[in-house]
Amino acid sequence: MKVLNLRCAHEHRFEGWFASDEDFESQATRGLVGCPACGDTAIAKLPSAPRLNVSGLKEEGAPTDRPAAAQAAALQAVQQLMARTEDVGERFPEEARRIHYGEAEARGIRGRATAEDAQALREEGIEVVALPVPAALKGPVQ
């Protein structure tokens, strides 16, 4: 098994595990390797060094890998949001209106809306936020 350091076009860094370099190239060429943060399939392989166990050598208070920590925190926040909201799919604009006007139970919902639908909701005083959900969080990961 080969562990590769990868980066998408949006500068998100992550690891990928492949049987070989050729396996990575094959999957990447077919668009099967996607960024876990944004789903981008324009993936580049980064130079990597052999793994060394230096955890005991780290000085107390030394800085951590901030970009990776921020990415992990963002993914965790999205996971929590998804766990606490109901997915209403394409019915999002209609369901948001029903909740806003008291025709449906008040609850947290998520779903899909066009930019025009989202703007129309905002003009009606309904707060909406666009949140891209990484493909890895949309379904089971294999």
Rank of each mutant, 00 (worst) to 15 (best):
F18E: 02
P93Q: 05
K138P: 04
H100I: 06
S26P: 02
K2F: 09
P132I: 00
P93V: 13
F14C: 00
G31Q: 00
G31S: 00
R107Q: 10
R91L: 15
H10Y: 11
A120S: 10
F92D: 05
A96Q: 02
K138G: 04
A106L: 15
T85P: 11
L4Y: 08
R7E: 09
T114C: 02
E25P: 03
S20H: 02
I126E: 09
M1I: 14
M1P: 13
P93M: 02
T29E: 14
R98Y: 05
H10I: 04
L137S: 03
L131H: 06
M82K: 12
R97L: 12
R98M: 08
P67W: 08
A69H: 03
R107E: 06
A28N: 05
R112I: 12
L121M: 04
R97D: 10
Q71A: 06
A69N: 05
R112W: 11
R97C: 05
P93W: 04
G56K: 13
L121Y: 04
E116V: 11
L81T: 09
F18R: 01
P132H: 05
G139W: 06
Q119T: 12
K58N: 15
A106K: 07
A96S: 06
E123D: 14
G34V: 07
E15Q: 09
G139I: 00
E105T: 04
R30C: 03
L137F: 01
D117T: 15
L131G: 02
H10D: 07
V3K: 14
E127S: 09
G111V: 04
R84W: 12
E59H: 11
K2M: 13
G102D: 15
A49M: 14
T114V: 00
E90P: 13
S20G: 05
K58T: 13
K138E: 07
V78G: 08
A136K: 03
P140M: 12
A113F: 03
A96W: 03
E94M: 05
A106R: 13
D40R: 03
I109R: 04
P50E: 13
A68N: 06
R30M: 06
G39S: 01
E124R: 13
E25N: 07
T41Q: 11
A106E: 11
G102T: 08
E95K: 06
E95S: 14
V129N: 13
A28E: 00
G16F: 01
A130P: 11
A49F: 15
R97T: 05
G39A: 02
E22P: 01
T85W: 07
I126L: 00
P132V: 01
E95H: 05
R13Q: 06
Q27V: 01
A9N: 11
K45D: 07
S26L: 10
R84I: 08
A118D: 10
L121G: 04
V128C: 00
A62W: 10
